[in-house]
Design a binder for these strands. Structure first.
Lengths: 247, 247
DNA sequence: TGTCGGTATATGTATATACATAATATCAGA
DNA sequence: TCTGATATTATGTATATACATATACCGACA
């Protein structure tokens, strides 16, 4: 078997020096050579080892600290941290591209579009006091099979241009990404049994398990939109990955 | 309404200079003042603006680039990037702490423990050629209610000390976190209808929608363990968040 | 007009240096 | 022995400097 140190050093490509240090240290930690609590060599020691300045090592160690792999304490040194709470990055693709990457033809149907004063439910979802919301219900299809049922409310005060858009052929998800540049988002994921209405729309038996993803998108302080995506059970699987220092 | 620039500058606490720059630029992007594609001021310009050296600005910009908020191109400058694919960080807590944080009493029951040669299914899950796996089935309870059904296989070759452990009172999840220091993980999440066996164990009606999380944990190259967690529907909701440069 | 090649420019990396900050270690004095 | 001041030390931040690298731009030349 190949020694892990060799593995690390073998990969010395044309990477920058500080990136090499990051990789080497990360490899040591992942391989278990340096268990949690182990003190990583001091910056000065590593600098000597790699024949570089302390600043270069510092840059590498700062990266590792930001990634959560090590914890740094003044005067004491840097220590391999305990594996944090199991966490993973969940990538939620645009529905259209998701379907097309499956080799299916994407089709979008608008079921309902209405403008209304925010009711109690809307206000809770968007954390707003008063105002109007645009309510949209639509169906995404892969080939001739229903793929996902979407129910969305848009905060009209924040996205007034949504009133101009019919959404007859444009799915609101992608459209909003264009309009509201960057965003923060909160997701909840749960399993529900399809009620009769949902079952009919998704062409599945009533009671079939469905995956429901709800997302609230915000920009700085204001909440922009809330969407509830219902996927027919087993037909859809979410994938999430976690790798430390996800470079 | 407060100007967003003021908002950003108002928050000038005792943060380090490069962190202030990160915050200010992030605020500008989130507020939409700098839309996607907009060219961020050059490092030299920002250095002048903040009356600091280019290196300090460079540190800030590098952070923003790593976080994906901006894209940097030599000779051209830095540009606000298009909102990436909706992604979010999913934190999957230790089941014990999750239950206890709900104010319930945690109880763990081992249902089955067996050592066996890896069958085709095991080999697929752990991506292994041959060898033994430890198979564990257990139930996590919150108060007197079933909370989660766990089915796990452990790669004995990678974690030989698992043979010494009875798991009669120790849940394998937390134990493994201690034994296998750092890890990468792949998760899949889906909704299923409870079969009769599952329904009985979880004390729910057959066919109830359940959330199933499968996780494969690895350390460097080798796969350590595969676990399938089944939560009774509606009783459990996953939460995931996304904020750019999740500092 | 089109292409080649040189120059200017913004970022990328690395260094030496300096001082700040936090926390440990040490030692004097009560 | 306990207390508190002081020294030591590792990290944190910031600077000036230097050179590397990629590339946009522009002008010369065919």
């Amino acid at each position: 078997m190949m020694d892990s140190a060799e593995t690390a050093l073998a990969a010395t490509g044309d990477l920058s020096l500080h990136q090499q240090i990051v990789n080497d240290v990360e490899a040591k930690i992942l391989a278990g050579d340096w268990p949690p609590g182990h003190r990583v060599p001091f910056e000065m020691e590593l600098a000597e080892q790699y024949k570089c300045s302390r600043m270069t090592v510092n840059k590498a160690m700062s990266q590792l600290a930001r990634a959560g792999l090590i914890i740094r304490r003044k005067k004491s040194g840097s220590f391999v941290s305990l594996p944090q709470v199991q966490s993973a990055v969940l990538k939620i693709n645009e529905i259209r591209s998701e379907i097309e990457s499956l080799g299916k033809i994407y089709h979008y149907d608008l079921l309902e579009r209405s403008l209304r004063r925010a009711n109690a439910n809307d206000r809770a979802h968007l954390d707003m006091k008063d105002g109007k919301v645009l309510h949209l219900r639509s169906l995404h299809q892969a080939g001739d099979r229903p793929f996902c049922l979407e129910e969305r409310i848009i905060n009209v005060a924040e996205v007034p241009q949504s009133l101009e858009e019919s959404f007859a052929t444009t799915a609101p998800g992608g459209w909003l990404l264009q309009q509201v540049p960057w965003s923060t988002a909160e997701h909840t994921i749960q399993a529900i049994n399809a009620d009769s209405e949902t079952a009919k729309r998704l062409a599945i038996a009533e009671g079939t398990a469905c995956l429901v993803i709800e997302r609230r998108t915000s920009s700085n302080a204001a909440h922009i939109t809330h969407v509830r995506l219902t996927y027919p059970g087993n037909a859809h699987i979410l994938v999430a990955r976690f790798t430390p220092s996800q470079s």
